[in-house]
């Protein structure tokens, strides 16, 4: 039997022919990295290959690393295997990886969403035979509203809070979600304040992308200046003493998990906005269809359920591979956002 072009081993997704890993979760010699979230870009690889716009992000997170930047659609060949990066629409600078060898094409999505969020480069469908897809939200219970509607809700919420003389504290992952929120907040309502982790990452991203002004909350920030404005903070800041400066405040989380009432109540949030950087059920199905693939490998999320659906209902040759990617889980479930 022919050796598969990409295999899943204990270190990551591996291309033996090119001796290169993609989004490895253990330290390896050469690794193509799809995007800057910590479960995809681990520390300790000898050489990183990633999209040019992801370089400052991973350098900010990982420090002094050896990294080769690539452009979208730029091909590079290693021992006969041709690689190229294509926008995944997940966060700024996030890629899918196309791998071609002797006419056989595989695509690994990393994390992705199909809706244009007005900030990250829009997801580009790539024809392939084997499609390795995430399925963080691979259940029919997840159906996103158009982004414009969600931001109308968010901005209305902010305006209402302001009218009631309360500060709006909105939680979202400091890389990706925070900048997407900042990009679409209506600054005619007030000012955007940030938590340290969000501010640092926003400054890194500002170099390449146009974002409205933000102001870091420091020890010297005055309570009365912040009052009525909006504060963007990572989920880990919820429940800490830091937030007392915002009193009286109202809290909300922007995450795909907020589609479930239970998830919001568990986090003791006032409000939940259903806003995700991952594809919803229909998004996943349309992305798969557009690749024209025959084989699907699901990597993280509701993998077993989703691949069963693809097999039994849609006739794909679909299976699951175990990885250590977390999807959007860390946005609500864990406290371990690194101090960026």
């Amino acid at each position: 039997m022919k050796h598969p072009l990409l295999v899943f081993n204990e270190k990551g997704i591996y291309c033996q022919q090119a001796d290169v890993y993609i989004d490895a979760w253990r330290a390896v010699d050469k690794c193509i990295v799809t995007h800057g979230h910590s479960d995809h870009s681990r520390w300790g690889h000898k050489r990183y290959i990633t999209h040019r716009r992801n370089v400052p992000i991973i350098k900010h997170r990982l420090g002094d690393i050896t990294v080769t930047p690539k452009e979208w659609n730029e091909t590079f060949t290693i021992n006969g295997v041709t690689f190229s990066l294509h926008p995944a629409g997940h966060i700024t600078g996030s890629s899918q990886v196309r791998v071609e060898y002797k006419g056989e094409v595989w695509v690994f999505t990393g994390d992705y969403k199909v809706e244009d969020d007005g900030l990250a480069e829009t997801f580009e469908p790539i024809k392939c035979q084997t499609f390795i897809t995430e399925c963080t939200f691979g259940l029919p219970a997840f159906k996103w509203e158009p982004q414009a509607d969600v931001f109308t809700d968010i901005n209305n919420w902010w305006a209402t809070n302001k009218a009631e003389a309360r500060t709006s504290v909105l939680f979202g992952y400091s890389l990706g979600k925070a900048q997407r929120l900042i990009k679409h907040l209506d600054t005619s309502i007030g000012k955007i304040y940030t938590h340290g982790a969000v501010e640092k990452m926003t400054q890194v991203i500002r170099a390449e992308y146009d974002l409205p002004p933000t102001e870091l909350i420091t020890r010297d920030s005055k309570k009365e200046d912040i009052a009525g404005n909006i504060v963007i903070a990572p989920p880990s800041a919820h429940g800490g003493i830091w937030i007392r400066k915002m009193l009286p405040y109202v809290t909300a989380t922007a995450s795909g998990w907020m589609a479930f009432r239970g998830a919001r109540r568990r986090r003791a949030m006032d409000k939940g906005f259903v806003l995700s950087d991952h594809a919803d059920w229909d998004g996943l199905l349309s992305a798969i269809k557009e690749t024209g693939c025959e084989k699907v490998i699901t990597t993280h999320g509701y993998t077993d359920i989703f691949s069963r659906y693809l097999r039994e209902e849609l006739g794909y040759d679909a299976r699951t591979e175990k990885t250590q990617y977390e999807g959007e889980l860390n946005e609500i479930e864990t406290e371990k956002e690194e101090e960026a």
Binding site: L139, P140, A141, F142, K143, A259, F260, R261, G262, Y302, I305, R308, Y309, E312, E313
Partner: peptide, 29 residues
Amino acid sequence: QSGIPLWLFEESYHIVGDLAETIALILPK
């Protein structure tokens, strides 16, 4: 009405945890 198989509904229900909410979520928008 949702056009999904029953097993997928059951799996969704296990995860959502509330029958009324699951039905409201999986029906066409």
